[in-house]
Amino acid sequence: MTHTVYVKLDEITELTHKDILLKDVAQVYCRDQNIQNKCSVCRIMTVRSDEAHRYVMSALDVTKKLEALDPGLEVEHMGKTDFIIAYKPAAPPAYGRQWCKTACICLISFFGAAFAIMTFNNDVSVTSVFHEIYRLVMGYEAAGFTVLEASYCVGLSLGIMVFFNHISAGKVNTDPTPLEVEMRLYEENISKTLIDNAQRKEKKIDIS
């Protein structure tokens, strides 16, 4: 009797154990629960190295493993045709190092953004524009900083928080933040590059 097994592979999965089972990298479904359980624990590869590495596999590799497990299976792939296993040896969490990295990133982002804003304001002469607007509205020159500069600072801060869709631990709405979108695009580009490089390995590529 033929059983159809549906497999939905994740594009990239980070694991710390060396024996990689199908359930670690994919969702598996079969009408027969026993067949589903047997396929879920099918070992698709064993990591031989003790160092962190990313391995690229394809849906064909999974199909071969499942058919070897049970020749009566019919495998239907619903997700990615190529996927990545990111093996990372298990290690105790280094909280001090993580906090230091987070602090460095926060400082770089803060001062980098502040420098970018200051250079932009200086380039377009925001101060001169505010003084000119104040003179046109009030009829006389401003003696120093005005309400325009204060409003600009407050509005800029609020605008950044609203744009990045983060206020404290909550969100302004249910949309993904621009940072989340960019991180997802970065992750997809990394995965695509790894898969393409693996497919081109030991092949002659004509780029002319």
Rank of each mutant, 00 (worst) to 15 (best):
A94M: 08
A59R: 00
V41W: 03
M1Q: 09
K171Y: 13
R54C: 13
L60N: 08
V126E: 00
V172M: 14
A86T: 00
K38T: 15
A94E: 00
H131L: 11
D50R: 04
F120W: 14
P89F: 12
L148H: 04
E74V: 08
S168V: 14
Q33A: 11
V47W: 03
I117L: 11
Q36R: 06
M161F: 04
V162Y: 15
R97A: 04
V181L: 15
S168E: 02
C30W: 00
E76A: 08
L9E: 01
Q98R: 08
K38M: 06
Q33F: 09
D82P: 00
I12L: 11
I20Q: 01
L156T: 14
P178R: 07
L15S: 05
K8H: 13
R184F: 11
F115S: 02
K64G: 09
L148N: 02
Y186P: 09
F145I: 06
E180I: 09
L73W: 03
N173F: 12
T174I: 15
N37K: 13
I117V: 15
R135C: 06
E202F: 14
R184P: 05
V147M: 12
S157V: 09
M183F: 13
C42K: 15
E180T: 10
E180G: 10
H17G: 03
R200H: 10
V56N: 08
E14W: 03
V124D: 00
K101N: 11
N122K: 08
K23F: 14
R184Q: 11
H131T: 04
Y6N: 02
S157F: 04
F130H: 06
R48T: 08
E51T: 09
T2H: 04
I167W: 12
K80W: 03
